[in-house]
């Protein structure tokens, strides 16, 4: 497997859950991987070690991707480590933080959710696009929530992901002439810490039972789709939001 041999990939929020699976999968396909993280230093170390054990290069860089100064630092460190050509950018960092209804959330919570999910995607893309050229690929993590408004108390999360999906289409138009492809994926229920923390077991069981494939997805399946979109086999795919949900959206 070497679909991405010699390419340089950045995975924001790459230390755990889906981000970790993406980092490892891209490395398995031959890419050098920048594992960005903010909270989970141990997860980032573990991810980098696992990649190195595969004989591939990886570095972990701690920055807050919703902060423009931090993004500039991230860029400087990546250029120092891997040079000034980036092939794959995976805007994966994001989070729900808490389930809050319209009556419950305040401006600070709004800013937190929008910044981590949407602002980060916008300004990380702005920072790295100048280092990307023909054949490069940007992959944004949107969500099933962007399609259906999300589960209870996730209005801001789902709206931020809706913004990510639309930004993806706009960037596909803007960057298409440079030969940069921009796509998003919309995962349905994927068994990760995200749902361990925020979704009740009975809800998860109900959703899985209502999914045509009768199960939750796993992080590796999302990572496989990211690796595919990053590869030349997807060379004519841009501006797409691809669902990965076991058929859930239509059940």
């Amino acid at each position: 497997m070497s679909k991405l041999k010699g390419k340089v990939a950045i995975v924001t929020g790459g230390s755990r859950d889906i981000g970790r699976a993406i980092s490892i999968k891209l490395a398995k396909e031959g890419a050098k991987v920048v594992v960005n993280y903010f909270n989970s230093e141990s997860g980032a170390k573990k991810t980098v070690e696992e990649i190195k054990s595969l004989g591939q290069e990886a570095i972990a860089i701690k920055v807050d991707v919703s902060n423009l100064g931090d993004i500039a630092n991230l860029k400087a460190k990546i250029v120092a480590a891997f040079g000034d050509k980036i092939d794959i950018l995976v805007n994966n960092a994001g989070g729900l933080f808490a389930r809050k209804t319209l009556e419950e959330f305040d401006e600070a919570f709004y800013n937190l959710v929008m910044d981590v999910n949407f602002k980060s995607t916008v300004f990380v893309t702005q920072a790295f696009e100048p280092l990307m050229g023909k054949g490069a690929s940007i992959i944004n993590l949107s969500s099933q929530a962007a399609r259906d408004g999300g589960g209870g108390g996730s209005a801001l999360y789902s709206s931020s992901k809706g913004a990510v999906s639309t930004f993806t289409r706009a960037m596909a138009k803007e960057l298409g002439p440079k030969g940069i492809r921009v796509n998003a994926l919309c995962p349905g229920l994927i068994g990760t810490k995200f749902h361990d923390d925020f979704t009740k077991d009975e809800v998860r069981e109900k959703v899985a039972a209502g999914t045509p494939l009768r199960r939750e997805g796993n992080a590796n399946e999302v990572a496989d789709l990211v690796a595919y979109l990053a590869s030349d086999d997807a060379s004519f795919i841009t501006g797409n939001n691809i669902d990965i949900n076991g058929g859930l959206a239509f059940s």
């Binding site: 138009k173 494939l213 399946e221």
Partner: peptide
């Protein structure tokens, strides 16, 4: 062919009921 190769593969094992546009962004 590249898209069909992927959809047929084990790597697409959680993707079903999906339609993938192969238009270089044309549909938008």
């Amino acid at each position: 062919a590249g898209v069909i190769s992927f959809l047929a593969s084990k790597d697409a094992s959680f993707i079903t009921a999906e339609t993938i546009q192969i238009g270089g962004g044309q549909a938008l």
